[in-house]
Design a protein around this nucleic acid. Structure first.
Lengths: 296, 296
DNA sequence: AAACTGTCTATTGTAGATAAAATAACAAAT
DNA sequence: ATTTGTTATTTTATCTACAATAGACAGTTT
């Protein structure tokens, strides 16, 4: 069926929440930029809104007729792009489904399982290969290298190099750099979470990602920032499937982040390095614990 | 036309040089493993060899009838895979053809220019994107970030981190590790080249690549080793299109490599670090000099 | 004239089809 | 026990086609 219209559906949903608040509708162009889509898609959205009798629309006169109802929204499955679907499906297979290192990966089989064409699966695998978990044998299959202890060690080795350098770079940023303001906000978010840790500890994963990204960004090095994608995806799925002791683990991590933030604010290099190392060490331990040791 | 039979053609050429020396033909299976192809392809090759009356072939009796002639070989264009063709073509466009940073890259146009389908171009761009020179705008074009001074600085920053760590790792390898033997060979090759530098300086590019790969490999970290692909491709094309003063430049680099090798053999960390830093510094200078400064 | 809209075109994302190559199986021959 | 003939099946690499989306231009409204 050629292209899926997930861009339209997702933008439509976001548009509904957008107009639910402000009841005056902006111009097509404006709507397009605030939703991040082209005018073509905006017009498709407006047409659909009109069909559902949520708005009236004639040329440049648009008016709200009624508030959006839950039934108006497209369901979550419909709005996720094919790439997201494939990623989730693939990660479930290789992480949850007891996939052995060395296992062969078959494009056709994956595509059939997921219910997509082979092209999309192929492109996903090519993109995914930079994460070092799979490898291509040309004219033949892909090989799963596996989420092993070695993988985790190699990953964290690089992470530590990059983050130490980024943290040092952060501490050296000029007084008026916007990152300092972001850091203040980040600190407030952490304090908030720590105050209500019993109910909020599940949200740590997202906060963790945002905090470390802020640090990495200060390196201004595209390779360091890009590498952080690997960290993100690994920890994202890791958090999803390893929930043992996560309350305590996350509480400790929040505290470590706060120490780390305080250290950055001193701008004293040895202090920064100490706080950074300490946090990275426990992050590594957490990751390693979740990896099932191979039998050999 | 679906798949190109470049695997067959390339393997056929390699087979010709292989049998030109030894005149007894091995079994199909054996031939397959030494050429790195399946039995299906081996049989296609044997059939073609028979058609050209280079060998006689009846069941397991195969005999050479005549030596291969230049005309028997497939031409170089026919044997290079589509991916290689696309890479060369693309690199020529973005490096030689005065491509400005910020320029849009159009899959369809590229494909038409090169004379291939869009799928292959797309897959190439996805693979290539990890080199940090291009970036995708989803549902829209790719953007060329350009081979700029910033790019070179970011690249060399990582390179220096990785290579210093790898070099330190190399110096710490146990006495009986095979890498020490490879290093001896490498040293001999360098001495050879230095002795005949006037005629051999053009081959330095390849030697350089092999030497640094040897060092990087000792890190045993897939991310470090994979990153070296970026270095390789950048320096490969860099050498191709920047030939100014290359004789002196290469002579100096060979000497630096020899110092570096000597330093590794001392296994003394400060010595290694000094030699490594010195070579990397001049490599960076060379790279930077070749980049045209943007007008701003 | 500036902002907006209607209409049209070009390009991307994805599915499906096809040739090349890999893989498999097994009986027959050495 | 290894190699080959034979045949069939599976999978990859690549092309083509088409809907969704982006983007451009000209006309319209304020």
């Amino acid at each position: 069926m050629a292209k899926q219209n997930t861009v339209f559906k997702d933008a439509f949903n976001r548009c509904l929440t957008l107009i639910a608040e402000a009841d005056a509708l902006p111009s097509e162009l404006e709507l397009g930029t605030s939703l991040g889509v082209s005018r073509t898609t905006v017009r498709a959205i407006l047409t659909h809104l009109k069909t559902l009798e949520i708005i009236s629309w004639d040329k440049r006169t648009k008016a709200m007729l009624r508030a959006p109802r839950p039934a108006d929204f497209f369901s979550a499955e419909e709005t996720s792009s094919l790439a997201e679907i494939i990623e989730r499906s693939f990660m479930r297979r290789i992480l949850a489904g007891g996939a052995e290192p060395g296992m062969q990966i078959n494009e056709l089989e994956l595509a059939r399982d997921i219910g997509t064409g082979t092209t999309s699966v192929r492109e996903f695998l090519i993109r995914f290969s930079r994460f070092g978990l799979i490898e291509k044998r040309p004219n033949s299959h892909w090989v799963l290298k596996g989420f092993t202890r070695d993988f985790a060690l190699e990953l964290t080795e690089i992470r530590e190099m990059f983050e130490l350098r980024s943290a040092a770079g952060f501490a050296a940023l000029p007084e008026d750099h916007p990152a300092w303001h972001d850091l203040e906000e980040m600190e407030a978010l952490h304090r908030d979470m720590l105050a209500n840790i019993d109910t909020r500890y599940r949200d740590f994963s997202e906060l963790d990602e945002r905090f470390h990204l802020l640090v990495h960004r200060s390196s201004s090095n595209r390779f360091i920032i890009d590498f952080y994608d690997i960290i993100t995806i690994v920890f994202h799925y890791h958090y999803q499937w390893n929930k043992a002791n996560d309350r305590e683990r996350n509480a400790r991590a929040v505290q470590e982040h706060l120490n780390y933030i305080a250290a950055l604010k001193t701008r004293d290099l040895p202090t920064v390095e100490r706080a950074c190392r300490q946090h990275l060490r426990s992050a590594r331990e957490t990751l390693l614990q979740s990896i099932q040791q191979p039998d050999v």
